[in-house]
Nucleic acid binder design. Structure first.
Lengths: 142, 142
DNA sequence: TTAACTGCAAACATTTTGCAACCGT
DNA sequence: ACGGTTGCAAAATGTTTGCAGTTAA
């Protein structure tokens, strides 16, 4: 009936069993361009299937995360936030005044991170970078 | 009886009411050079004062954090970790094999972060950077 | 003395889990 | 049909809080 969402298609390609609930959650996540927490995903999914359970949402986002379909983030508010995993890695810049989350990528920083790890005898396998900022005043040129 | 710990001295200087429990917790934290979570602080404090309560530890580390005496970190294991706030800011490099936490500082990365924030019209007010790595093989020169 | 602090236990928020019923393949 | 999945409610985890009693200043 409904079109197949991008995440659902990935699941199908990988031979996952696709239940109605998983389809709904996949659709919700594919349509989201923010970084919803489980509760938000649950609320959005409930509008499509009102009898979906939050336990299923928890189980499903974990499943998707383990399958590298989703990325899990912790922005410091008490709950985990999710977004569709993308080809191109990016980090997050959070406007603490509005709560808006911007995505950015900076190759220089990434290269320096690798360098730092190497200096300490480690191979970088992951990182977490979040910047927190407030809107610039008009007269701020620093 | 016991010598005054560095953190206790800071508390005294700021006119905080110093109870026996706070003195113990201050001492434990001053003596720690790792990044203990509340439970670890509680265990260490309990060896000095066995009837201290974990609620008091929670209240005290929050108090210290709000007074900028401690820094709170989230390294992805379910609990908050603390360390004495230092003059010089540093970030963390975590060996995911051993769990060891190394501290590092990199001015270039810091400068680039500021630049990124500014590009998006924000003034950087804070950041979180954690690198995760595994030990380099001997033949890895990348 | 008295306002702040503590211990205890109950409350909280988020996430996980045991189990019987259910459903996709 | 069968094995994985779901819903529900209970449990687990980390943290906070209300309250009556205690203590530092």
């Amino acid at each position: 009936m409904a079109a197949i969402s991008k995440i659902e298609q990935i699941c199908i390609d990988r031979g996952m069993k696709m239940t109605g609930q998983r389809r709904v959650i996949a659709q919700v996540l594919s349509q989201s361009d923010d970084h919803p927490n489980v509760d938000a995903v649950y609320n959005r999914a409930s509008k499509i299937d009102p009898k979906i359970s939050i336990a299923t949402v928890y189980r499903t986002v974990r499943l998707f995360e383990e399958a590298n379909i989703l990325e899990k983030h912790d922005f410091g508010d008490g709950s985990a936030r999710y977004e569709e995993a993308t080809e191109n890695h990016h980090d997050h810049l959070i406007d603490v005044q509005s709560g808006a989350v911007l995505e950015f990528h900076n190759d220089e920083i990434e290269a320096l991170q690798k360098q730092v790890a190497k200096k300490y005898g480690l191979k970088l396998v992951g990182h977490k970078l979040e910047l927190y900022g407030v809107p610039l005043d008009k007269d701020e040129k620093d």
